[in-house]
Nucleic acid binder design. Structure first.
Length: 467
DNA sequence: TTAGGGTTAG
């Protein structure tokens, strides 16, 4: 069966979000030689000449859609090595893939920008906005600003990307003056500034911007706006309830994200009854909705119910993710369900495809340590596939304090000193271990070490309460 | 050429 490049392209566009089909079409494209430059330049019509670029761009976007950003970037290197010229449409997918694939995207951002410069596509507003976004995510705010300043007439989308850049880098002074100077604002602008203040912990300011947003008749708050403002309401649940009322009155339905935010809000503010009501009334749920409910139950001491919720979510066909496991491992820890906790931890990767991260290891150390299995916890840490950080060591140190194991506590403390000398709280826990057994000399010594490395006990911090 | 840019859950 012969499939023309045009028909393969159509197939790809049709199945651009379907993992299996994308890989099958990719194979067909490789076998048919369509990802290579046209061997006969005489047949190059203007349309045909662009087909390999179009195919690569579509394939690059397809792999991004199915959450394989490394493959997207790899395809770009194939594209270059086969001398298929990228065009302005190529780069936005690449910048997105870079953000998705790397925790420090700056390593890729600069060479990618050089490629865009070399290909002469940097005057395209889509490409410019993409790089503003990428540089902002790479902690290269000055580069983002430079790209923005080079735009002769920045559009609203570019302004929003720049605004988000200021917010993401914590520069709220620049963000707010930029926001106030914008000639036009849309729901993205408002949500971005609200979220920016939120992330800095300036919840009251975030709420004030939301109120201003509601007064702006040209803008209608959307799901993202509500999600942002609801997380600002942890200190003013009354306002959160008002927003909840506003949502019920003005929105067609409580979406999975809005519902999740409401459950977290009510869970964090001690309104488990409201959280449950929201959860039960939601027509459409997501994994995150179940996570929120599991956390809400667990934080109210209803760990057994949280674990039942985990079973229920599986029965209803939801796929647990890494957040789910943090919640249920913590619930096991609270109930001293060691066997179940270890069994769940062991099932993460083989059964659910969730790779255990630092926080999951921390949960297991807490689980073992709290019940007095200190040697097992220590052994568990030694078998970790990466170096334990201060949170994991801190969990073990807390357990040493709980069970009065000074020798192990001392050993862990030494490692903590190496890993994170600025972790003030951990030193305080440590010094309280010695204080508990009236080993005041050691306690005094450690306090001196803290002062030596510039760590100060925060005023009003109580060792007893911290435990 | 018609594939591409900005906001949201722990």
């Amino acid at each position: 069966m012969f499939l023309s490049p045009e028909s393969l392209l159509q197939l790809l566009q049709r199945f651009i979000k379907n993992s299996i089909q994308i890989k099958q079409i990719h194979s067909l494209l490789i076998i048919s030689g369509n990802l290579l430059p046209n061997p006969n330049p005489n047949t190059n019509s203007s349309t045909f000449k662009w087909i390999p670029t179009l195919l690569y761009n579509t394939l690059i976007r397809a792999y991004l859609n199915i959450h394989l950003p490394h493959t997207t970037l790899l395809l770009f290197t194939h594209m270059l090595s086969h001398n298929i010229p990228p065009n302005p449409h190529t780069f936005p997918s690449l910048t997105k893939a870079t953000v998705a694939a790397y925790t420090t995207p700056s390593l890729i951002a600069k060479p990618l920008y050089t490629q865009a410069l070399k290909r002469g596509v940097l005057s395209d507003p889509f490409v410019q906005t993409s790089f503003i976004h990428l540089y902002a995510k790479s902690n290269c705010l000055s580069y983002a600003q430079k790209v923005f300043d080079e735009m002769p007439e920045p559009c609203l989308v570019s302004c929003n990307a720049m605004l988000d850049g200021f917010c993401k880098n914590g520069d709220m002074d620049s963000a707010v003056s930029f926001f106030e100077s914008m000639p036009v604002r849309d729901v993205y602008s408002w949500t971005t500034i609200i979220n920016g203040y939120n992330k800095r912990g300036c919840y009251d300011t975030a709420i004030r911007f939301f109120q201003r947003c509601l007064r702006d008749c040209s803008v209608k708050a959307n799901e993202a706006t509500f999600v942002s403002v609801l997380s600002a309401c942890v200190h003013s649940v009354t306002f959160g309830k008002q927003i909840h009322g506003y949502i019920i009155k003005n929105e067609d339905q409580v979406t999975p994200f809005i519902g999740t935010s409401l459950i977290y809000l009510y869970g964090k503010t001690g309104h488990l009854d409201y959280a449950t009501k929201v959860f039960e009334s939601m027509l459409k749920k997501e994994t995150c909705t179940w996570n929120a409910m599991i956390c809400a139950l667990s934080s109210h001491g209803k760990d057994k119910q949280a674990l039942e919720m985990f079973d229920k979510m599986k029965i209803e066909g939801y796929h647990p993710n890494e957040v789910t496991f943090v919640g249920i491992l913590a619930a096991c820890s609270n109930c001293n369900l060691i066997d179940l906790g270890l069994e769940l931890f062991d099932s993460m990767l083989p059964q659910f495809g969730v790779v255990p991260k630092m926080e999951h290891y921390g949960c297991v150390v807490d689980l073992l340590g709290r019940s007095g299995f200190l040697a097992e916890a220590k052994d568990f840490i030694s078998r970790m596939p990466f170096e334990a950080d201060a949170s994991v060591l801190g969990a073990l140190l807390g357990a040493c304090k709980l069970h009065g194991d000074i020798d192990l506590g001392n050993e862990v403390a030494k490692r903590l000193l190496e890993v994170d000398p600025q972790q003030c709280g951990q030193y305080i826990v440590l010094s309280s271990i010695y204080a508990d057994v009236e080993n005041w000399g050691h306690a005094a010594f450690l306090r001196n070490v803290m002062v030596g490395v510039g760590v100060h006990k925060p005023p009003g911090y109580s060792v007893v309460n911290s435990m």
